[in-house]
C-alpha cells in the first residue's frame, strides 16, 4: 500500500490519494445483519470510558474475554462500579492512542469528551471508535447499553441488561413516597439541574429537583447564597473522607447552610460518589439510597 522510495511520482501520488481517502473514511458502520453480528462477536474491544468498562463487564463472559483494555478509571472507587473485577491481565489505559493502537482493538469505546486528536488517530490507523455522547440519565443509559451490546455482538445480553435495569427501577418506583420533597445536589458550588442523571435519580426516588424547577439545565455553578435561599429539605452531597456520616455532619455545620431545613432536620444526605455521579447501574443504588432516606419515612417527633 505504501509507496517505495523508487516508485514513480504518479504511483506515489496515487498511493498518497488512496492513503488520504482511507484516512478520511469514518469508522465502520454499525453491524445490522446477522453476518455482521457474527463479525462483531469476533472483534476485540477496548473501553476508554467508565460506563463502557461497566457495561462490557455486565454483558457477560463471552464479551469480557474479548476486552483487551479498559479505562484507567475502571478500578477507581470514586467512579467505577466494577472496581477490581477486570482481570489484572487486562491493561488499564489512560487514553494514550499509542498504547491502544498496539493492542489493535476491533472497536474502542470512547466518550464525546475524549480528545478529538486521539479519536482521529485511532480511526486513521484502522482502530474504529464508537463515541458515547450524552450522559443525562436513564434514557441515555439504555441507549448506550444498546449501542455497546450491538457493537460487541451481544444484543440479547444488552436487552437483558436494560430489562433488569428497568425492572429494578419499576420495583423502586412502586409506592414512591409522597408528597415529593424538594432537594438539590451540591458539590463544590456545582448543582445538577434538568438533563442530568441526578435529575432522573431524584424523580425516581420521590423528590423534586429544585434546580430544575429554577430552569437550570445540566450542571451549573451557583452561589451558596442562592442555594441557601431555596431552603431545600434535602441536600445531597458526595461522601468524602473519613466517612459519609462525617461528611453529612461537617456539611450541616457549614456557615449559612446550617440554617437550612436540610441541616436542621437531618436532610443532608451523603452518597458514595460512584452512585451519585454514576451514569450506569450505580443510578439504581442512588435511587435506593435516596428512597431509604426520604423525609416522609422519618418517624414523627414524639
Amino acid at each position: 500500500m505504501t509507496s517505495s522510495p523508487t516508485a514513480p511520482p504518479r504511483r506515489r501520488g496515487a498511493a498518497l490519494v488512496a492513503l488520504a481517502l482511507l484516512a478520511c473514511s469514518g469508522p465502520p458502520r454499525a453491524p445490522a445483519s446477522s453476518d455482521e453480528e457474527a463479525v462483531a462477536r469476533g472483534r476485540t474491544l477496548a473501553s476508554q470510558t467508565v460506563l463502557s468498562d461497566e457495561v462490557l463487564w455486565e454483558l457477560g463472559p463471552a464479551v469480557r474475554d474479548r476486552v483487551v483494555a479498559v479505562s484507567v478509571m475502571a478500578d477507581d472507587p470514586r467512579y467505577s462500579a466494577v472496581v477490581d473485577r477486570w482481570p489484572e491481565a487486562v491493561p488499564r489505559l489512560a487514553g494514550t492512542s499509542e498504547a491502544l493502537l498496539a493492542l489493535k482493538p476491533g472497536y474502542t469505546f470512547v466518550a464525546s469528551f475524549t480528545s478529538a486528536e486521539a479519536r482521529a488517530l485511532l480511526d486513521r490507523h484502522g482502530a474504529p471508535t464508537h463515541v458515547l455522547d450524552g450522559f443525562t440519565g436513564f434514557a441515555d443509559y439504555r441507549r448506550h447499553v444498546g449501542d455497546i451490546a450491538r457493537l460487541a455482538g451481544a444484543e440479547q445480553a444488552g436487552r437483558a441488561l436494560v430489562e433488569r435495569f428497568d425492572g429494578e427501577l419499576a420495583r423502586l418506583s412502586r409506592d414512591v413516597p409522597t408528597p415529593a420533597v424538594g432537594l438539590v445536589s451540591y458539590n463544590e458550588g456545582v448543582i445538577a439541574g434538568r438533563d442530568t442523571s441526578f435529575h432522573d435519580v431524584a424523580l425516581a426516588a420521590g423528590f423534586r429537583n429544585i434546580a430544575a424547577e429554577h430552569e437550570i439545565t445540566g450542571h451549573r455553578s451557583i452561589s451558596d447564597e442562592l442555594l441557601v435561599s431555596w431552603d431545600p429539605a434535602v441536600i445531597v452531597i458526595p461522601c468524602g473522607p473519613p466517612s459519609c456520616d462525617a461528611s453529612e455532619r461537617a456539611f450541616a455545620q457549614r456557615p449559612g447552610f446550617s440554617a437550612t431545613r436540610a441541616a436542621r432536620e437531618g436532610g443532608v444526605i451523603a452518597l458514595p460518589p460512584d452512585n451519585l455521579y454514576s451514569v450506569g447501574r450505580g443510578m439504581i443504588a442512588a435511587v435506593t439510597a435516596l428512597r431509604r432516606r426520604h423525609p416522609s419515612l422519618r418517624s414523627p417527633a414524639p
Binding site: S71, V72, M73, D76, R78, A94, G95, N187, E188, G189, V190, S221, S223, D224, P238, R254, P255, G256, P273, Y277
Partner: peptide, 25 residues
C-alpha cells in the same frame, strides 16, 4: 490526575479566585 474531573473542578475554581463560602473563620 486528568481523569479525576472532580479534582479538576476544585482546582480550577480555586485558581480562579473566589469568596464563595468564606466565613468568619
Amino acid at each position: 490526575a486528568s481523569e479525576r474531573w472532580d479534582l479538576g473542578l476544585k482546582v480550577v475554581r480555586w485558581l480562579m479566585g473566589s469568596f464563595e463560602g468564606r466565613s468568619w473563620d
